[in-house]
């Protein structure tokens, strides 16, 4: 480019420099999810225009679907950032919904939510300590706790759902709203923002990323890598518990299978959002956006009239594609 045209278009030059820098640093990968969200939204808005995709109630429905996925995804981002994975989040969500339902009836809404979060933190601590102390990869440990926790959830109320009648709980974590903003949306934004700040502005967030990128190098600089890995797994489990609270609030019940099938959806949301499945790169904002993508896809597949079985197949294909794309990009770097 000549000097003249550079002077004529300083904004263009600045934009190009910014783009170049991005490409060299993290690549354009972090932005893919937002483009994907816009494209999918546009696509469905056109092809499903007669099927009610754009109606206010359907968009609200997508938001409600996305909320627990986004909360779980924000937590899972920290596990993946630390180069761990938490496969037990789905059953943790389910058990937490039951615990919340059980406790809220006796001790009120704060205690209900707190008990659920404590259950999550406990499961996460167990996952983390076994991973670190017994030196078993977290995908195996959490595969084991997945079974244990869902067994406990099934035993807890004999496969029956437990109704929640505490109005405050239902308003705060479910159908309520603050002004025009529904409480589910509000919680999603709060969790997403909190996660983003923790990842970028707190020492712990940077240490999680360091441990995930190169555990030995982080250890050589004196970082307590065991502590970081345990707390990262506690974060993903606690977030899963909070998602259980939100599901319980939305459906006004606790049940042994609430959120149990969300694991793959959450992993896809996180990976689409730009987090590396094997540690060292993470984006909470991307994970939240990825959750919206997954919720839109779910919704679109239903509106297209796919049967449940075909939805399962389509979702599986989408997840594998998303992960494959993200891995290919990873190898290129």
């Amino acid at each position: 480019m000549t000097e003249d045209s550079a002077a004529a278009a300083p904004g263009f030059v600045a934009a190009r420099q910014w783009l170049d820098r991005r490409r060299q640093d993290a690549g354009l990968r972090p932005y893919v999810v937002y483009v994907a969200a816009a494209l999918i939204f546009g696509l469905f808005a056109v092809i499903l225009r007669h099927d009610g995709f754009l109606t206010a109630s359907n968009l609200l429905n997508i938001g409600r679907q996305a909320a627990p996925i986004a909360v779980m995804a924000a937590g899972m981002t920290f596990a993946l950032a630390a180069a761990e994975i938490d496969l037990s989040i789905g059953s943790t969500t389910a058990l937490s919904s039951l615990v919340a339902a059980e406790v809220v009836g006796e001790y009120g809404f704060v205690a209900g939510a707190a008990a659920a979060l404590a259950v999550g933190a406990g499961i996460g601590a167990a996952n983390g300590l076994i991973t670190v102390k017994v030196r078993i990869p977290s995908f195996l440990v959490t595969l084991g706790t997945l079974g244990i926790v869902s067994g406990i959830a099934r035993n807890m109320n004999n496969l029956q759902s437990l109704p929640i009648r505490n109005d405050t709980f239902l308003a705060v974590f479910g159908a309520g709203s603050l002004g025009p903003v529904s409480s589910l949306l509000l919680w999603t934004v709060v969790v997403g923002l909190l996660g983003h700040l923790v990842l970028h502005q707190l020492r712990w967030g940077r240490h999680v990323l360091s441990v995930g990128a190169d555990r030995n190098a982080a250890a050589a600089l004196g970082i307590n890598t065991a502590r970081i890995r345990v707390t990262a797994l506690m974060t993903s489990a606690a977030a899963a518990s909070f998602a259980g609270v939100l599901l319980a609030g939305r459906l006004a019940i606790g049940r042994h299978d609430l959120g149990e099938n969300l694991l793959l959806t959450v992993i896809a949301a996180v990976v689409i959002g730009g987090t590396n499945l094997f540690g060292g790169r993470a984006s909470v904002a991307g994970a939240v956006a990825g959750s919206v993508v997954m919720a839109m896809l779910n919704n679109g597949l239903i509106l297209m009239g796919l049967r449940v079985a075909d939805q399962l197949i389509a979702r599986g294909v989408i997840i594998i594609l998303a992960v494959a794309l993200s891995m290919r990009e990873q190898k290129e770097r």
Binding site: A26, R203, L209, S210, A213, D214, A217, A220, I223, G280
Partner: peptide
């Protein structure tokens, strides 16, 4: 302080973060 043969820097962190890793100012 040590610069190890293979454990020198953390890739995804930036220069400042690497310089101050585990010695961060708050």
């Amino acid at each position: 302080e040590t610069v190890h043969q293979t454990l020198a820097v953390i890739d995804p962190l930036d220069v400042v973060e690497n310089l101050f890793l585990n010695r961060e100012h708050t």
